[in-house]
């Protein structure tokens, strides 16, 4: 465990000045900032909206752009960046000849990639809430304070996180095996498009394909919004079903790839 913690801290120390780390911070910040600016400029049109509508309108474009477009790319990039660090510096041989169990070194790297994605999604929640509330203070005519979206937003992003673990682990393994960016990127890109098409067309077995999971998580949220629209007078109560079968598949893939990856690392001669 000590070896794992040391390796994990070292991962942070190594990446804290790289694009891999900062993209996980800047992406949520910039996306939320852009929507904030848009809302600020159009605030007069939005005054008639209720607090709940405002929050949904505020969070939806961020979620949409993120969930459908940027998240798969971000996952591919995060998985690539934690591994390319060692490929570029030719340091695999060094980290695997440290007096630390190979499993700790490997697991620390794997969970650090998970941590980066978690950080990014947590920041999405924080920045969405932060910018929303800030907008409410700057423009008191916008009724952001009437409604709290914190709980549901956290649940949605957490569901996103769970839905992404399958892809992240596959991309992690690809980036571990291939030192160049093109192979994992190309494979990831094709699979993401395929996954999008499968989930978009509602193919019955799409839940078995990890690259479909983020889109399926998005759809789950879409349905609950519609549910809200049906009863506009009442304050709708959104729920996110956290552990759907696609989420289980995502988790199972993550565990399986983690184990497989470890044996590949053990077998693979360190170049």
């Amino acid at each position: 465990m000590k070896g794992f913690i040391l390796s994990f801290r070292s991962e942070f120390y190594k990446t804290r000045k790289t694009m891999g780390f900062w993209s996980a911070v800047l992406l949520p910040f910039l996306l939320c900032l852009f929507v904030f600016i848009g809302f600020f400029a159009k605030s007069d049109d939005l005054m008639k909206n209720s607090g709940m509508e405002l929050w949904l309108k505020f969070a939806a474009p961020i979620l949409g752009v993120m969930g459908l477009l940027l998240m798969p790319m971000l996952i591919i990039f995060i998985a690539y960046s934690v591994n390319s660090l060692e490929h570029k510096a030719d340091t695999w041989k060094t980290i695997f000849s440290l007096p630390i169990p190979k499993l700790s070194v490997y697991a620390a790297k794997y969970f650090y990639a998970f941590f980066l994605l978690f950080l990014c999604l947590a920041l999405f929640v924080l920045f969405t809430l932060g910018f929303g509330n800030f907008l409410g203070i700057l423009k008191p005519s916008l009724k952001f304070s009437e409604y709290s979206i914190a709980s549901i937003l956290t649940q949605i992003y957490f569901k996103f996180f769970l839905a992404s673990l399958g892809i992240l682990s596959i991309q992690f393994l690809l980036s571990l095996l291939f030192s160049d960016f093109l192979k994992p990127m190309g494979i990831g890109f094709i699979c993401t498009i395929t996954g999008g098409i499968l989930a978009g067309n509602g193919w019955a077995y799409a839940y078995l394909f990890p690259y479909s999971h983020p889109m399926m998580a998005m759809k789950a949220f879409g349905q609950s919004t519609k549910g809200g629209d049906n009863h506009p007078s009442a304050m709708p109560h959104f729920t996110v079903e956290m552990l759907t079968k696609d989420t289980w598949v995502s988790l199972a893939v993550a565990v399986a790839v983690f184990v497989a990856g470890y044996f590949i690392v053990l077998k693979k001669s360190v170049k």
Binding site: K14, K17, T18, L85, K88, A89, D90, T91, T94, S97
Partner: peptide, 14 residues
């Protein structure tokens, strides 16, 4: 053991 194998393994951005 301290080791140096082939070219030194150094993180160039640090």
């Amino acid at each position: 053991i301290g080791s140096l194998i082939e070219q030194p393994a150094i993180y160039l951005h640090m």
